[in-house]
Amino acid sequence: MTQHTLFVCTTCASTWENGKRVGISGGERLLAQLAQQHAEWELREQFTLQPVSCMSACDRPCAVAFAAPGKHTFVFGKLSADEATLPEKAAAVLNCAELYFEKPDGLLAWAERPKPMRTVVSRVPPLSAARSA
C-alpha cells in the first residue's frame, strides 16, 4: 500500500512581535486537533501526519497538503479556525484525505470536497508525470 502524507503548516496564523513568533499559531492548533482525530481515524496507518514549518500560503492560512507517490499533490488553504470550529475543520481535512486516498491519481473535483477544503493554493502533478511531459 502506498504511503500518503498529510502536511500541516505550523507557522500559519502566527502572531508576531518584534520579529519573533508569540504564542501558539493557528497551524499548531490545527495540527493538535488533527493529531487527536488522526489517532482514531480508520486511515491512520495509511497517512503520516507531518508538521511543516512553512508552506508559503501566508495569505491563506491555515494550510495543509496531501501527497503520495504517483499522485497529484494538493495544497489547501483558508483553514484557520477558532477553538469552536477546530474539530469541524479537522474533520473536513480527514474527510477530504479519505477522498484523496481513494483516487488513483489523487485528483479531487471541487464539488466533491467538503466546503472547508475548496480553497486550493496549488495542485502539483506527480513527479513521474512531470518527467514524462
Rank of each mutant, 00 (worst) to 15 (best):
P61F: 13
A91N: 13
T5V: 11
G106R: 01
V93N: 10
W16Y: 10
L79P: 00
S132G: 02
T2C: 13
R29P: 01
L79G: 03
T10N: 13
G70I: 09
T48E: 15
L107S: 09
Q37D: 09
L6P: 00
T11E: 12
A81S: 14
A81R: 06
F47K: 02
W110P: 05
F66C: 04
A90H: 07
V124N: 07
T11Y: 10
F101Y: 15
A81H: 11
C58G: 10
A84Y: 07
P114A: 01
T73A: 09
L49R: 02
T48A: 15
P61E: 07
V52L: 14
G26S: 06
E112S: 14
G23F: 06
P69N: 14
M1W: 15
P69R: 11
V120P: 06
T73E: 04
K89D: 05
L49D: 10
C58R: 08
N18D: 09
C54H: 11
V22Q: 01
L86W: 12
E28Y: 03
A68R: 03
E42R: 06
G26V: 08
K89Y: 12
C62I: 08
V8H: 04
Q50L: 04
T73K: 04
M1S: 13
A97E: 14
C58P: 01
E88K: 10
M1C: 12
K103I: 13
T119Y: 14
L94G: 12
D105M: 04
Q50N: 02
P87S: 06
E112L: 06
T85K: 10
K71D: 03
A39E: 10
A90F: 07
T5S: 00
Q46P: 00
R29G: 02
D82M: 08
M55W: 11
E98N: 15
Q37W: 11
H38P: 00
T85L: 06
L34W: 08
P126K: 14
R44T: 07
R44M: 04
R113F: 09
G27L: 00
E42M: 01
R131G: 00
L31E: 04
V121A: 08
H38E: 10
T11Q: 06
E40V: 03
S128M: 12
L6S: 01
E102M: 11
F76K: 05
C62T: 12
V8P: 03
I24R: 07
A35Q: 14
L127N: 05
V52T: 12
W41T: 02
Q33R: 04
A68I: 05
